[in-house]
């Protein structure tokens, strides 16, 4: 029995497993950063949609209607690559000389100096921005609707007491908007959490990639077959992780709702 325990302890703390555990931070970082950016893009998009100027309204509604329809997997593949190549193209126009252009045998980048090497941190940031852009379009719609739900009379009262447009927006309008936006934003957040399982598409060695690798039949020539196909067990761990995240999110959104709804949702508790 103790042998068994010792085996499992050492198996579960071997280098690959430790790397797997560490890779949870990528998923959590991408979810949090993506979520934050989605809210920021959502606020910006909703403000554009509410703008007095037609051109700005057009940008806002184009963003929320077009980007919502793009599959997140596709955007995940498209945006970081397009961004990387755009940077490289710009760099090439700055640093490449005829000699280096001639020396380059590959088709891209134009010259070696213009190459932009992306590591995990860079990809992680690009992934977060992609998540923020895609789900910010959903958040735009959620926040836009929530802004319209705030009672007009209270905005009018704020104007009648001499508040500037900016003061009305931040002190009354956005402050009260959260109550109406949070249920929708919690949906968007759950979609973002789910989309974090796509990180491996961007060469990030994330939890899904490692579960795949660790669960595959493990054959060492010195030992023989360590284990056969264990992938479902590893996937099960991911299930449990995502369920725990869901549970924690529900709690967090409940607390946020209580905070944002103070006074507005408190009739029942008076």
């Amino acid at each position: 029995m103790s042998d068994n325990l010792a085996f499992w302890l050492s198996y579960l703390t071997n280098g690959k497993h430790l790397t797997w555990y560490a890779s949870f931070q990528f998923t959590i970082f991408a979810a949090l950063a993506g979520g934050m950016l989605a809210v920021i893009f959502g606020l910006a998009g909703a403000t554009l949609k509410n703008s007095r100027f037609f051109a700005l309204r057009l940008i806002g509604s184009t963003y929320s209607s077009i980007v919502r329809g793009v599959p997140d997997v596709l955007f995940f593949l498209f945006f970081p690559l397009a961004f990387e190549q755009a940077v490289e193209w710009f760099m090439a126009s700055q640093v490449c000389t005829p000699e280096t252009l001639a020396a380059q045998s590959a088709t891209w980048p134009p010259c070696k100096e213009a190459n932009w090497f992306l590591g995990t941190p860079e990809y992680l940031i690009l992934a977060s921005v992609s998540l923020g852009l895609v789900y910010g379009a959903f958040a735009t719609n959620v926040i836009h609707g929530a802004m319209r739900s705030v009672p007009q009379g209270q905005l009018e009262a704020a104007r009648a007491y001499g508040m500037s447009a900016t003061q009305v927006l931040w002190r009354v309008h956005i402050r009260q908007m959260w109550v109406y936006a949070l249920p929708g934003l919690s949906n968007v957040w759950m979609l973002i959490v789910k989309a974090t399982s796509l990180l491996s598409l961007l060469q990030i060695a994330d939890i899904v990639l490692w579960a795949d690798r660790l669960g595959a039949p493990n054959y060492l020539s010195a030992v023989g077959l360590v284990h056969d196909d264990w992938r479902w067990r590893y996937y099960l761990v991911l299930f449990v992780f995502y369920i725990l995240v869901t549970f924690a999110s529900e709690k967090a959104f409940g607390a946020l709702m209580n905070r944002a709804g103070r006074g507005i949702l408190s009739e029942a508790r008076s």
Partner: peptide, 20 residues
């Protein structure tokens, strides 16, 4: 207008207190 409004105390039919 903001300066003038800040000296006019308006009371509305539907109160319009800030709920938050």
């Amino acid at each position: 207008i903001r300066r003038i409004r800040s000296e006019l105390g308006m009371v509305f039919q539907s109160f319009n207190l800030w709920a938050h």
